[in-house]
Write a protein that binds this DNA or RNA. Structure first.
Length: 856
RNA sequence: GGAUGCUUAGCUCAGCGGGAGAGCAUCGCCCUUACAAGGCGGGGGUCGUAGGUUCGAAACCUACAGCAUCCACCA
């Protein structure tokens, strides 16, 4: 027998291991239709956070649901080596021991990194188990494993041979702390407060001075020119002259180019080709040299003269002081501008000229754009997120893929002393070749995840059967990083989209709506939440508290509500089990033997199954859960469970009602199970006639013959009567169990109404087809009076209020039905519905008027 | 500068073309043998503003305002 209160800890214990041991997570039943997905691989940087829970729980619900729907579901698990992120963590750990990666050297550093991976990989496995992910461990992968590495090399080599990967010198984003190049998407722009320095440049052979403003004075050592707009009347006459760079006294040509915006700053702009992408483009146009003044740690080089060796900011301050002392500083303004920071280290990114490997994106992006115009496009849910992909593909720059890191896939390019480059799957034969020191951007391998995890580039049975995958679930924040790249790599290398559907979810924020971040210290550990409310409540909360694609706030209140809901289902099950009794043998519902209330609840159940399944098929977990919730609370627990106590005490009806109770509670459990598998399993196993596990069950099937609006109307009427009388008692200050006498006129749709009224409304006497002195209630086809010590005036008052209400209802209906436009254009069933309502209200009004008359 | 989303009950949010909903909070009554971390009942909203489309708008369109996010630019 179940305990009185649902205890998540007891319920969760041991189940996952059993499922895993029994092999329920393993795919491969080829008699069924395949359905597949890959896990968004968590980084092996640390523990799971709530973001991972949001990434994986919807998947788990899909997997469990689709299994019940009869599919052979494969969910591929795995983890991401997360190059730069993990390396930063490992380096941080070493730094605390006073060691740098350079002290260790590459080999030993990698050993430490692999130890780190194993440690955190174990933690992640424990957490997957804790949150109940039904992933197929026999197919688990890691982005640095041999298979993925081979796929990475294959892709690199092929793209190189196709001319889609090239090595080039360009301005890239340099992280001076981690000492590596970054791609554009790894740079976070924030509006930072800075200073705008106005310097005086003497014009050679002239008395004039030119004012040039800059935010980065330290780069002035790398300047090669000053630009103004060619038509700028302030400066037009000076074009062609030279000005003196106040940083180092060198002569710089003053040039005119329409790129310059005369309204910005002073309209004169210094050009630093090696440290700014726009200046780089100008320099290329005019053939200027590219002069680097910063080293890989953002310290000044020898070109900075006396400032050589200084950090860039140190140099900035010192240089400004020097220029000021020499009288060439006009002013300093406060200035807010967008500054790029490294996503991982937070360091201010330095644009720098550097030789790196790039992916030529245009042809790959065009292919995706074409694909998204075809039948085989990747479908986004919600649809608007497709625009994010399209926009990125339209505007994409070449992708810088080389990283000056050690943790990752080493670039399969080899060099020799003759300056030759060899790119291939294996190292070239012969002496004197050395491999490129750099590794690839971690997203390079993530981009291959959906097909490489299934065996590509080899033609494996899994790849044939499960690719393309069915669905991918991920946050909108990594559409660029991951989704976009999976799409173009997949289409280029497999000629297929990687997944048919992408379900995009929002981000989880803290209770005040702020992003969870380390610096704010407002992150919430899922393990703490589980400790407090249980996994099932967490799973339910995370999938049912925001509309698709919108952000969600963490809320203890909502977790508690979820937990209470589960307790409700728990206790409803407990009650049904008590009612069925020991040794109950489940029976099919005998449709002919059903009581009207049984028919009511069964019809509501079928409507619920239909609506829930529809929403589950659309991956609309909020919608599906809402429908189920209303059914569980309002129809089943609050109403039917109570009312059925009447028929249970009737030997003639007991059997059918028991069968109904069993069917309804069982199907509720099966529907809540994908969301909350632990309590789902526990409750399922408590039912008579259960299989070995709920994981072997099929989803409730909609039975049309039980779905009847007419039956629902009957139950609805009883519900309304009971609610109205309870409200009446409450408003009169009567205790809920105060005894009353009542009478009704008219035909009630089912027998035994008296029993219900006396049992649930404490009617001491119920007269049929009679009338009492008292307050009257008018229902569809039934007129009910309660005898109480209520004075006539109060009764009249009540009836007058009801009359007013009905009159306004009737006015509304008549207005609608007398509108020719409505009659002509509204759907027929809507018109019929309104007519029916109007007729009903008119009948009610008649009764009210009659009652009033009798009282007059 | 471009794009997207949000604005609904005190709070947090659903609903997105046919009579305003949930959770929490609030008020009242109940320890009724499934559940007191509960049950039952009640109060509370001119659905951001202004136009428009429609027989009918919280929902669709346009403009505006506020908030948030993304992209681009920023000498």
């Amino acid at each position: 027998m179940l305990e009185k209160r649902y205890d998540p800890k007891k319920v969760e214990s041991g189940k996952y291991q059993t499922w895993k041991d029994k092999g329920y997570f393993t795919a491969g039943d080829t008699s069924k239709q395949p359905f597949s997905l890959v896990i968004p691989p968590p980084n092996v940087t640390g523990k799971l956070h709530l973001g991972h829970v949001m990434d994986t729980i919807p998947d788990d619900i899909i997997v469990r649901y689709k299994k019940m729907m009869g599919y052979d579901v494969l969910w591929v698990p795995g983890m991401d080596h997360a190059g730069i992120a993990t390396q930063a963590k490992v380096e941080e750990k070493l730094r605390k021991q006073g060691i740098s990666r350079y002290d260790l050297g590459r080999e030993r550093f990698l050993k430490v990194a692999w130890d780190w991976k194993r440690e955190y990989g174990d933690t992640i496995h424990e957490q997957w188990a804790k949150i109940g992910l039904s992933v197929d461990y026999t197919r688990e992968r890691f982005t640095l494993d041999e298979g993925l590495s081979e796929a990475v090399r294959k892709v690199f080599v092929t793209l190189y041979e196709e001319g889609l990967i090239y090595q080039g010198e360009k301005i890239i984003n340099w992280d001076p702390e981690l000492r590596t190049a970054l791609s554009n998407v790894e740079v976070i722009h924030t509006d930072d407060e800075g200073e705008f320095f106005y310097f005086l440049y003497d014009v050679v052979d002239s008395d004039e001075t030119l004012v040039v403003a800059t935010t980065r004075p330290e780069t002035m050592f790398g300047d090669t020119a000053v630009f103004v707009h060619p038509e700028d009347p302030r400066y037009k006459h000076l074009i062609g002259k030279y000005v003196i760079n106040p940083a180092n006294g060198e002569k710089l040509p003053l040039m005119g180019d329409a790129y310059v915006d005369p309204s910005f700053g002073t309209g004169a702009m210094k050009c630093t080709p090696a440290h700014d992408p726009n200046d780089f483009a100008l320099a290329k146009k005019y053939g200027f040299p590219f002069i680097k003044v910063l080293d890989e740690t953002a310290k000044m080089n020898e070109l900075a003269g006396e400032f050589c060796g200084m950090d860039r900011y140190e140099c900035r301050d010192a240089l400004v002081e020097k220029i000021k002392a020499e009288g060439h500083l006009q002013k300093i303004e406060r200035f807010t501008h967008s500054v790029g920071h490294s996503e991982r280290s937070g360091a201010v990114v330095e644009p720098m000229l550097s030789k790196q490997w790039f992916v030529r994106m245009r042809p790959l992006a065009d292919r995706v754009l074409a694909q998204q115009n075809s039948e085989d496009k990747v479908e986004f849910l919600p649809a608007r997120f497709e625009k994010v992909l399209i926009r990125w593909m339209n505007e994409v720059d070449d992708w810088c893929i080389s990283r000056q890191l050690w943790w990752g896939h080493r670039i399969p390019a080899y060099y020799n002393d003759k300056g030759e480059v060899y790119v291939g799957m294996e190292a070239p034969k012969g002496e004197g070749w050395r491999q490129d020191e750099d590794v690839l951007d971690t997203w390079f391998s993530s981009a291959l995840w959906p097909f490489a995890t299934l065996g590509w580039p080899h033609k494996t049975p899994d790849f044939d059967r499960y690719f393309p995958t069915s669905v991918l679930n991920t946050g909108y924040d990594i559409i660029f990083f991951w989704v976009a790249r999976m799409v173009f790599q997949s289409e280029h290398f497999t000629d297929k989209r990687p997944f048919k559907t992408v379900v995009i979810h929002g981000l989880i924020r803290d209770e005040q709506g702020r992003k969870m971040s380390k610096s704010l210290g407002n992150g919430i550990d899922p393990i703490d939440v589980i400790e407090k409310y249980g996994v099932d409540a967490l799973r339910y909360f995370i999938t049912t508290n925001s509309a698709p694609g919108l952000d969600m706030r963490y809320s203890d209140e909502k977790l508690n509500a979820a937990s209470n809901y589960l307790n409700k289902i728990w206790n409803a099950t407990r009650y049904v089990l008590q009612t069925l009794g020991e040794g109950y043998v489940p029976e099919e519902v005998d449709e002919k033997a059903l009581d009207p209330l049984d028919r009511y609840i069964l019809s509501r159940l079928e409507g619920t199954i239909q609506a829930v399944s529809e929403r589950m098929d659309e991956y609309n977990f909020l919608g599906a859960s809402g429908v189920l919730y209303d059914f569980v609370y309002d129809d089943f627990c609050s109403f039917y469970l109570e009312m059925s106590k009447v028929s249970l005490s009737d030997p003639g009806k007991e059997k059918a009602t028991k069968a109904t109770l069993y069917k309804v509670i069982r199907e509720i459990i099966l529907m809540i199970y994908p969301y909350c598998p632990f309590i789902g399993e526990e409750l399922y196993l408590s039912l008579p006639g259960h299989k070995e596990s709920v994981m072997l069950e099929t989803y409730p099937k909609y039975v049309a013959s039980l779905h009847s609006p007419k039956d629902e109307k009957n139950g609805q009427l009883l519900k309304e009567i009971i609610t109205a009388i309870r409200g009446y008692k409450s408003s009169k200050g009567l205790a809920p169990n105060a005894s009353i006498r009542m009478a009704f006129e008219g035909a009630f749709p089912f027998e035994g109404i008296q029993t219900y009224l006396s049992r649930f409304l404490f009617a001491s006497e119920v007269k049929e087809n009679a009338k009492l002195h008292g307050e009257a209630f008018v229902f569809d086809g039934a007129n009910l009076t309660i005898e109480q010590d209520v004075d006539k005036a109060t009764i009249v008052e009540g009836l007058l209020a009801e009359k007013e209400r009905l009159l306004s209802e009737i006015a509304r209906g008549e207005k609608m039905l007398s509108n020719p436009g409505f009659l002509a254009k509204a759907p027929a069933d809507k018109v019929a519905l309104e007519q029916e309502k109007l007729a009903g209200n008119k009948a009610k009004l008649e009764t009210v008027l009659k009652n009033l008359e009798e009282l007059a």
